[in-house]
């Protein structure tokens, strides 16, 4: 069992070890969906929600696997659960709020291959977090992901107005911006200890 306080877990997942900028998890949506501010916000919300649900499921599965003594099934069952959670969430949102469903569009199914979610499930079992700790960890990670995405989208919207040479257009300049953001987040390293 791990005895970290809930507050320190949250700050740790959200700022100090930001999933995108320090662990390099979920880079694909980070580069792909950070073009506009409002899509970035919605994507962040959807990812946070899936993180919360799959983190709870992962906690249950881990206990079950320990019970039946089959650790080698961990990866396979995690990914299966995440894929079906995303599917369920998709159906649920479609039924309850078609407007939100249309707004999220293609991003929902793509969440399955977002490594931040599988990474979260693996990290929380490695660290031995309890149920409440897992939920707070998932919430922090989701908020951190949203924060990085929104910051990046803001930067890129400004970038469109700036004059950039042809050769750096596209991914190259985005990566440089991400590097600068990552350096900024290094400043949080002293927090929370």
């Amino acid at each position: 069992m791990n005895n970290d306080s809930l507050w320190s877990i949250f700050i740790n997942a959200c700022l100090i070890n930001n999933f995108v900028l320090a662990y390099f998890l979920g880079i694909c949506p980070f580069l792909g969906v950070s073009g506009k501010l409002d899509t970035a916000t919605r994507m962040g919300g959807a990812v946070t929600f899936v993180m919360l649900v799959s983190s709870m499921c992962a906690y249950g599965i881990q206990n079950l696997l320990v019970l039946i003594d089959a650790p080698y099934l961990k990866l396979i069952s995690f990914i299966a659960v995440i894929a079906s959670t995303v599917q369920l969430v998709e159906m649920f949102i479609k039924k309850v709020s078609p407007v939100l469903f249309r707004a999220l569009g293609i991003f929902l199914p793509l969440i399955t291959t977002n490594c931040a979610i599988l990474g979260l499930a693996l990290f929380q079992t490695n660290k031995g977090y309890g149920f409440a700790q897992s939920i707070v960890y998932a919430l922090g990670a989701g908020m951190g992901f949203t924060l990085a995405l929104v910051l990046m989208a803001g930067l890129r919207e400004k970038l469109e107005l700036a004059k950039t040479p042809d050769i750096v257009k596209g991914t190259a300049i985005t990566l440089m911006l991400a590097g600068l953001l990552s350096m900024c987040f290094m400043g949080f390293a002293g927090l929370g200890n």
Binding site: A22, Y23, A172, I173, G179, S182, M186
Partner: peptide
């Protein structure tokens, strides 16, 4: 981490 972003940007 920042170095990773910069190096990849350089190669691109």
């Amino acid at each position: 981490p920042a170095g990773g972003f910069f190096t990849l940007a350089g190669w691109l």
